[in-house]
């Protein structure tokens, strides 16, 4: 039964940035925690908010809104950090709040339409349509800044 569950549907965690809906594969999510002020890093791209202490590990915090080119987020008491695993690294994503956990059949995920926008092709893995809503499934592979940009910025 368990096996069926995994092969047929993926569980996704969804959240909202302004009017758009996004989601992440729940398997990549390690935990969700409240916002704490981050220590800024020098010479880092604007979407890197800095680093926080996650039980002894130094965790970089990325502003997902800024990363997706939608403007800087304004962290409030309601904001949360979604801690995700990207390769061997743990990264915190700052979002305004998570909405729900939904299940989707991977076969119904539509390819990302070509809107001629680099951010969309890099960070949107596919589109999920659910009850008339359009939810963008975020790809995490490129979410960290490449090694050189830190110095170039």
């Amino acid at each position: 039964m368990d096996a069926d569950h995994h092969t047929e549907t993926v569980e996704l965690i969804s959240f909202r940035i302004d009017s758009q809906e996004f989601c992440l594969d729940i398997m990549a999510v390690r935990e969700i925690r409240g916002w704490t002020a981050a220590t800024p890093l020098p010479h880092s791209p604007p979407f890197v908010r800095g680093v926080i202490n996650l039980r002894g590990a130094v965790l970089p915090i990325l502003d997902l809104k800024a990363r997706l080119g939608l403007g800087d987020a304004e962290p409030s008491a309601r904001s949360v950090i979604i801690v995700v695993q990207v390769g061997k690294r743990l990264v915190g994503l700052l979002v305004d709040g998570v909405s729900e956990i939904l299940a989707a059949d991977p076969n119904t995920v539509q390819a990302t339409p070509n809107v001629g926008c680099d951010v969309v092709t890099r960070f949107v893995r596919g589109i999920i349509t659910l009850e008339g809503r359009m939810i963008s499934w975020i790809a995490l592979d490129d979410i960290l800044p490449p090694e050189e940009t830190a110095e170039a910025a």
């Binding site: 002020a37 981050a38 220590t39 890093l41 020098p42 010479h43 880092s44 800095g50 680093v51 926080i52 202490n53 002894g56 590990a57 130094v58 965790l59 970089p60 690294r89 743990l90 990264v91 960290l144 800044p145 090694e147 830190a150 110095e151």
Partner: peptide, 27 residues
Amino acid sequence: IKSLEENYQRVDAVAAATILGDGRVAL
């Protein structure tokens, strides 16, 4: 001493990070 490279990458002019008594990260 805590590594920055473990979850992020090398940052120019920063050797590593540490965690202060108040739980915040200092470079």
